[in-house]
Write a protein that binds this DNA or RNA. Structure first.
Lengths: 229, 229
DNA sequence: ACAGCATAGATCCTATAGGAAATGCGATTC
DNA sequence: GAATCGCATTTCCTATAGGATCTATGCTGT
């Protein structure tokens, strides 16, 4: 408590539960917490040197993202890995939501958006492709940023909520797949196609290119799943 | 605490936070908590005669549904009413997700599902249409059940998550609209059309009829919004 | 009269303590 | 040898207390 929370640049400051949330999210992201691992409230509190109360609150929020699961009186644990079938289901769900996002985002795309999409693609190209989580993170961040920007630019808070409901799962699949970057070249090419549609202002084309992209991801992920087994 | 939690029929028992969650949800549903109302943690704890800790956890879960909003160090408040534009956005989002649900659910619909959909329509017909929340609730419950059954029958947990991300909002719009049942006849007819498509096993038709239904809801809700102002 | 400030109350946030339940381990019995 | 029972430890869950922050009211000064 002695540590003052200065530099609260914005109007909304942060409380401990927020920091715990970020810490847990980070641990889930870069693989320190593996699928199936129990997440003890008291244990995590000791580890982060806080009391159990903010940990409890952070976990309640995380549960909504699907990253952890809760059983009453038995605690939380990291959500299990996806089966190939579930992976296909996830991609099917993305095929429902993200092409619609692309269509609507393209309708009112400006130069700033296309510029930032371009930047995300450049970052994707520049990102290291090593198998370690730390390296992986930069790649994933650029990929996620590309899709999220489109979701946000659709200008529909409800579609964004739906995307968020999936977003966390997409991340988990990527990281816990443990495969590293296997489809960078394809992804870069497909992202570029989507960007071109945005620059042309062709919303219907943008929708189609997003479909193509996710179909591609789906097929490649299925292939990767087979390799893994 | 003296009250034993017997009758734990299932494997997962309930804890206090679950009860608080249900109580808050009920209060939000039937209008006891109006839009914009602050929800004090300590106050709610006193009212429900529990400690603030489970209230805090229940509110953290509720925040994910969009029913309440949180500002750090300033507490929770019931999410504000929708503007007509937001209402249109919500319907657009439903137009993205629910037709896809209908399509996929129809693909493996059995007699049990159609029977239960039929029952939901019957309940819709039988429900009172008074303006009071208590009366309204039965109507809403049957309507929500119809859509939820379809979402669940799509057999895709991720699409179901996406639907859930919207579901809470749909409820809020209905109840906080404060308009009572204004479109029962239309809704019953449109639901019946969807059911027919299910019985015929025509997935593409089911998708289209769901589109028609939500388009109808969208138009009627826009009209209602104008009436309200 | 109105703006600015100080104080009081309420509220949020975190830590701590203790009871209740679940898990793990060893001893006992068939 | 395998299954079951009992006990100890761990963990979850809830309550309580106190510090930090926010909001509102009243006061002062211009």
């Amino acid at each position: 408590m002695a540590t003052k929370n200065q530099a609260s640049g914005g109007v909304s400051r942060q409380v401990l539960a927020d920091h715990v949330y970020e810490a847990l999210l980070g641990a889930l992201m870069d693989g320190r917490l593996e699928a199936g691992t129990p997440v003890s409230i008291d244990g995590m509190a000791r580890e982060l040197d806080v009391s159990p109360t903010p940990v409890r609150e952070a976990l309640a929020r995380l549960e909504a993202t699907g990253m952890v699961r809760r059983m009453a009186l038995r605690g939380y644990r990291v959500a299990p890995l996806f089966s190939p079938e579930e992976l296909a289901d996830l991609m099917d769900a993305r095929l429902v939501i993200e092409p619609a996002n692309a269509f609507m985002a393209c309708k009112h795309a400006d130069q700033e958006l296309t510029g930032r999409l371009q930047q995300a693609i450049e970052d994707l190209k520049a990102a290291p492709r090593g198998p370690s989580f730390a390296e992986f993170r930069a790649y994933w961040e650029a990929d996620e940023r590309f899709h999220r920007m489109i979701a946000e630019s659709a200008n529909n808070q409800f579609l964004l909520s739906a995307y968020n409901a999936l977003g966390g799962q997409v991340q988990r699949f990527r990281f816990f797949g443990g495969l590293g970057v296997t489809d960078a070249d394809y992804a870069i090419a497909e992202h570029t196609e989507i960007l071109k549609a945005f620059e042309a202002g062709d919303a219907e084309l943008a929708r189609q290119k997003m479909i193509d992209h996710i179909e591609g991801v789906k097929q490649r992920s299925q292939h990767d799943s087979e390799v893994r087994n």
